[in-house]
Amino acid sequence: MTLSHHVAVITSDEQALIVASDLAEDFRRDSAQRDRERRLPLPELDVFSRSGLWGISVPREYGGAGVSNVTLAKVTALIAQADASLGQIPQNHFYALEVLRVNGSQEQKKRLYAEVLDGQRFGNALAELGTKTAHDRVTQLTRDGDGFRITGRKFYSTGAIYAQRIPTSVVDENGIQQLAFVPRDSEGLTVIDDWSGFGQRTTGSGSVVFDNVWVAAGDVLPFQSAFERPTTVGPLAQILHAAIDTGIARAAFEDALHFVRTKTRPWIDSGSDKATEDPLTLKSFGHLSIRLHATEALLERSGEFLDRAQADSTAETVAAASIAVAEVRALSTEISLAAGSVLFELAGSQATLAEHGLDRHWRNARVHTLHDPVRWKYHAVGNYYLNDENPPLRGTI
């Protein structure tokens, strides 16, 4: 499964940020049109893959840059600011690489990391519809000779339609969850482009069907055990979600600034000749900017906590990282929704015209922030500080 095109190898945090900034300029150009037409970003993903950014979390000992989580979050926010769907598509790719880092064998790490550095994209087939809770899984893994067979159906499979491998959560014959890195071209595997969400429209977050799909034993990793001991798998997933929302918020804020500066007329009661001089508009922009800057600062802070937890994963360091990430998840949820909505209050009726595509920011934020409820972030943070209660060891809190 080697890609034919040349793939760059990024070697430092600084290089990763420069490459992400350059790509973001290109991705921003047609992002509104892609959203409006629901045009899957296949050419953009090819450029994205060849840039080397999908390999920046591969540890240095396996040939990657091993960038900090501060940098990984900033890269994600930069891409999400340009195009929120493109920012989300690699989220589960990096999540799968973290599961590989904490639970994979040396052989699995060497082989799968090499694929990533060669430009392979990993999607996901984790969530399922119709189970008792959003975390329950029923997709079965059964032994078949020197490998396994997978049968089941997944949804919210962000990135699967674009991937060369689809990491899939499965339940083995002992009721234990495993993660199978299934090749996209496996017989019996069907990816269905049936995602109809009103936001994040080009993430490809639809269905994956497994009809007795064979997978090699070497492509199956322990999964459940990553949440039975202190690991950074959960907060790593969460910081990426926070970064996506932070990028959406920044995009909405910047578009609001541009629109008010160039198109918006002042309200008659303001006594101002320009919308940029309206005192109530100034107050609203001040309120948005302070919360946005606070979110960006918390995103960086949570990356530092996560770096420490990765270097030394104990109950204390992982809990501290999870809480730091929960704090920025709470704030990034609120500012992304606020920025996407207040944009129209400040910019005025012209901003609602479809040709501007400014509604995509709120739609993207509203859909993506439903990933897990912000009210439970506040609960976890309050319980941690008031009662010294560590958050649960799972992918969401």
Rank of each mutant, 00 (worst) to 15 (best):
1 M>N: 13
2 T>I: 11
4 S>R: 07
4 S>D: 06
8 A>N: 10
10 I>D: 01
18 I>Q: 08
27 F>M: 14
30 D>Q: 15
37 E>N: 10
38 R>H: 13
38 R>S: 07
44 E>V: 12
45 L>K: 14
46 D>A: 11
51 S>I: 07
73 A>N: 12
75 V>F: 01
75 V>M: 09
83 D>I: 15
88 Q>S: 11
91 Q>K: 11
91 Q>V: 14
93 H>G: 02
96 A>S: 14
100 L>H: 10
108 Q>D: 00
109 K>C: 02
109 K>T: 03
113 Y>D: 04
116 V>L: 05
118 D>V: 04
121 R>S: 15
125 A>W: 01
128 E>M: 07
128 E>C: 12
132 K>N: 07
137 R>D: 13
139 T>A: 04
139 T>E: 03
140 Q>E: 00
145 G>D: 03
148 F>E: 05
150 I>Q: 00
150 I>A: 01
153 R>N: 01
155 F>W: 11
157 S>T: 05
160 A>M: 10
166 I>Y: 07
167 P>V: 08
172 D>G: 15
174 N>A: 14
175 G>Q: 01
180 A>S: 10
181 F>G: 05
193 D>C: 09
193 D>L: 03
193 D>Q: 13
194 D>W: 00
198 F>K: 06
198 F>G: 04
199 G>M: 10
207 S>G: 05
209 V>S: 00
217 A>L: 01
221 L>R: 01
224 Q>H: 15
226 A>W: 01
231 T>V: 15
232 T>W: 08
235 P>E: 06
235 P>Q: 06
235 P>W: 11
238 Q>T: 05
247 G>T: 03
248 I>E: 05
250 R>I: 00
250 R>K: 04
253 F>Y: 14
254 E>I: 02
256 A>E: 00
261 R>G: 14
263 K>G: 04
272 S>K: 09
272 S>V: 14
273 D>R: 10
274 K>G: 05
276 T>Y: 12
278 D>E: 08
279 P>F: 01
282 L>R: 13
282 L>F: 12
282 L>W: 04
295 T>N: 13
298 L>C: 09
305 F>G: 04
309 A>P: 10
310 Q>L: 14
311 A>Y: 00
312 D>M: 12
313 S>E: 06
313 S>N: 13
314 T>M: 05
314 T>S: 08
319 A>C: 03
320 A>T: 03
327 E>N: 06
329 R>S: 15
331 L>I: 13
332 S>V: 11
335 I>A: 11
336 S>D: 04
345 E>T: 12
350 Q>K: 12
351 A>F: 08
357 G>T: 14
357 G>D: 14
363 R>F: 06
365 A>M: 08
366 R>L: 04
371 H>G: 08
371 H>W: 02
372 D>L: 06
374 V>K: 07
380 A>S: 06
390 N>M: 05
391 P>K: 09
394 R>A: 10
